[in-house]
């Protein structure tokens, strides 16, 4: 991977950070807790899934670990428009 690729990846990640959020579909969740277990900064993602609420926590890294680990496809990354009134 070239330096240019690395910088691009970092740019993409930062773009995702400011324009996206992890969004659950409560109807698929069985509260197994894998998402919370694997969150690197201990956000209780499972709680959000129970409530059907997006992970709107300023600490969320949007690293996608919870999305990748969920065995039931409960979570997805959804683009949000932060500055749209």
């Amino acid at each position: 991977m070239t330096l240019r690729d690395l910088l691009q990846r970092d740019r993409d990640r930062r773009t995702a950070l400011v324009t996206g959020q992890v969004t659950p579909e409560a109807g698929r969740c069985v509260q197994c807790g894998i998402c919370t277990y694997y969150c690197p900064i201990n956000i209780d993602v499972r709680r959000h899934a129970w409530l059907g609420q997006p992970v709107q926590e300023s600490h969320c890294l949007t690293c996608g670990e919870c999305i990748a680990r969920c065995p039931r496809g409960v979570l997805r990354f959804e683009r949000i428009e932060l500055f749209v009134p």
Binding site: I34, T36, Y37
Partner: peptide, 17 residues
């Protein structure tokens, strides 16, 4: 989580979770 027992058995999550 009763369905979570499957992941507890495989060691993917710990009991407390």
């Amino acid at each position: 989580s009763r369905p979570g027992l499957a992941y507890y058995l495989t060691g993917e999550i710990q009991r407390g979770h």
